[in-house]
């Protein structure tokens, strides 16, 4: 039972990280109809910048704030240099160009910070662990991640649900051209979404850095998961992204344990060793297929 609880916590934590990445992605995709494969790069850049800021200042908080803001600025810069020119062009152009960005920025990161993985220490205040199950502590830092993730989600819900800019965003997600025609400066809104989206992804990267090593390619896998999240949640819906991120996190973490245990129970050990992990990696995609079969526009799709 405790194992299940710990695994659920792990799932929620993965889900919240995914949410921070997916929130920006879903808005960019939903409001601007723009496929930004390079969105995950912000996560990596955030983590790298945090290491540099931390080395310079020695303060995790400063690194967190500095790296998040700098990543947001990078998002704005990319918007002005690249993304703006791709607006309104076909998805294939956007995919090609932003994929090129992944390669370019990945190489730049290697040039600047080198190829060996870097480390960001867990802040001393949060370095302890609480005994959740016997023999193992659950790191305080991870609990903090869950709290911060939920807080950011709450804040976003407030902004999107209760403010004027949030209303414009929601309207933009369902019909951008109409919003423009009603006198809203849609380009200013685009820039805002890009900046904030990039900042959130960078923020997630900084938060994840003390847990995993900071290396080029650390976001590749997460980007794919983030796309699964926005498709399951419904493109353009931040609420959908939140629910879907938590679901994907839980399905991945709990499913992995469950499927391997199930394979061991049903199959001879040799086969189970191969079938279990293979099935476990497929789980979230099966989950996505199941959701799309029932709701083709995703859980909270604003457009069919």
């Amino acid at each position: 039972m405790t194992l299940l609880l710990v695994q659920a916590l792990n799932g929620v934590q993965l889900g919240l990280t995914l949410f921070l990445i997916a929130a920006g992605l879903t808005l960019v995709f939903g409001v601007m109809d723009f496929i930004n494969l390079a969105h995950g790069v912000q996560y990596m850049v955030g983590a790298y910048l945090a290491v540099s800021f931390y080395d310079a200042s020695g303060s995790f908080l400063l690194a967190l704030v500095g790296a998040s803001l700098a990543t947001g600025a990078l998002g704005l810069l990319l918007e002005a240099l690249v993304f703006r020119r791709l607006m309104g062009r076909g998805h294939l152009d956007q995919v090609l160009a932003t994929f090129g960005l992944i390669l370019t920025i990945g190489e730049l990161v290697r040039l600047i910070w080198g190829t060996s993985p870097l480390q960001l220490p867990v802040p001393r205040l949060l370095s302890g662990a609480v005994p959740l199950m016997s023999g193992m502590g659950y790191p305080v830092y991870r609990i903090m991640l869950i709290v911060v993730g939920l807080a950011v989600a709450g804040l976003m819900a407030l902004v999107i649900g209760r403010t004027k800019i949030g209303m414009q965003l929601r309207a933009g997600a369902s019909n951008a051209a109409m919003v423009n025609a009603l006198g809203v400066d849609i380009h200013r809104m685009f820039r805002l979404v890009f900046g904030v989206g990039a900042m959130l992804a960078g923020f997630a990267g900084v938060l994840a850095a003390p847990l995993v090593s900071v290396e080029a390619g650390m976001s590749d896998n997460l980007l794919i998961l983030a796309f699964v999240v926005i498709v399951v949640g419904g493109v353009g819906s931040v609420r959908g992204a939140f629910i879907a991120a938590i679901l994907v996190g839980l399905v991945d973490t709990l499913g992995r344990s469950l499927v391997t245990a199930l394979a061991l129970a049903l199959l001879p050990p040799m086969a189970a060793g191969h079938v279990g992990p293979a099935l476990a990696s497929m789980l979230i995609y099966l989950f996505m297929a199941a959701v799309l079969a029932v709701r083709p526009a995703g859980l909270f799709g604003v457009r069919a």
Binding site: N10, L14, M136, L211, D220, S257
Partner: peptide, 23 residues
Amino acid sequence: AEDYVPLTSMDFQSELAKIAQAK
């Protein structure tokens, strides 16, 4: 247990929980 993780894994919290459980 023979626990096989994806080659791209970065977070092993779930495996650690399994290890703690298996003692």
